[in-house]
Design a protein around this nucleic acid. Structure first.
Lengths: 180, 180
DNA sequence: CAGCGTTTGTACCGATCGGTACAAACTGGG
DNA sequence: CCCAGTTTGTACCGATCGGTACAAACGCTG
């Protein structure tokens, strides 16, 4: 009887932990507390639809909490700083993996290609816009935005590989300085 | 009758494409042209041993072609530049995924934890050493080395997500400038 | 060519995969 | 209270999973 929102959260956690191919329906059923009947009632399209819905949910969250603020901020420099706050919280200092990034690296990229592409393209574009409106030239803004997004993704990899969340925190601090 | 080296190459490609859990023995058998009998003769430990051997092979390659040169170079600044060349070639401008990074993001990180940790720790350490010997202070060298390795990993994610190898190439160019 | 250890293909194992069928248990409206 | 419509658990499907057994084919030494 837990709502759809919470189900999507738990689904996301399973996909983050095992990847798309590695997340079995048994694991999903256990993690969500829902039997197959319920799962296929909520997601008639099966695992593919579950993943698509999870990606859509994540996309919505980033759109509302990161991209839109970056685009519409009166003080773009402050919006960038707020973005770093949100990123640090969301990814739990690198302990939590970026599901969209994981999908991008796997063979399921083709299946969810457009969602993945859009997620990152809009992130870079929104960030570049904010950087530009805070006084940088256009070319430099896009380049820096790309670097920042890439480095956030890489910091997650590195922090997990070294099992040291401090790596992520340090990276974000360094990026704050570069963006300011 | 293809040698063990080539088999490991093809194995690596399968793991890169499907991840550890997603790489089935059927896929592996097809990709290597070896039946199960041959595979279990070469790798008695099954899939886990295959992955371990592939990781070891990759580690050897990076040790010989990147880490050792970085550590032993007479002209450390040039060694760093050579590293970027090697990285660009090895990762095929972001079209090829970093298997160690993929493992770090997945649940199989625990199984191969030490190999993954060591790979990245030695990369960062070797690069930091070279940066330091080329005139930077110790703290700045480690920080920059971490940033560079993270950004390389992130650039792979971003280039794949946007399906645009130019992102990777641009990132490497920018990193060259920062390291110089 | 004989003999022997290794390499290889294939049949097979129980377990689990994603997905379906369907009846029992629930739900709100009359 | 009863019934239509939904939600749920469970049994089951063929396919495939990782792994094993083993005999035929092979390659080398004498």
């Amino acid at each position: 009887m837990t709502g759809r929102a919470e189900t999507l959260q738990r689904l996301a956690e399973v996909f983050r932990e095992h990847g798309y191919e590695g997340a079995s329906l048994a694991t999903i059923s256990r993690a969500t507390g829902l039997g197959k009947g319920s799962l296929y009632n909520l997601f008639p399209g099966g695992k593919a639809e579950m993943a698509a819905c999870v990606l859509a949910e994540i996309d919505e969250w980033f759109e509302a909490n990161l991209y839109a603020p970056l685009r519409e901020a009166k003080q773009p420099a402050e919006a960038v700083s707020v973005m770093f706050d949100a990123v640090e919280t969301y990814f739990r200092s690198g302990r939590r993996v970026c599901l969209v990034g994981v999908v991008a690296l796997g063979s399921e990229r083709d299946r969810f290609g457009e969602a993945v592409r859009s997620y990152f393209a809009r992130w870079v574009a929104a960030l570049a816009g904010a950087l530009e409106r805070s006084g940088r030239d256009i070319a430099g803004s896009t380049a820096l935005a790309e670097e920042i997004v890439a480095q956030i993704q890489g910091a997650i990899v590195l922090a997990r590989a070294l099992d040291d969340p401090a790596v992520f925190t340090r990276t974000i601090t360094a990026l704050r300085a570069r963006a300011a």
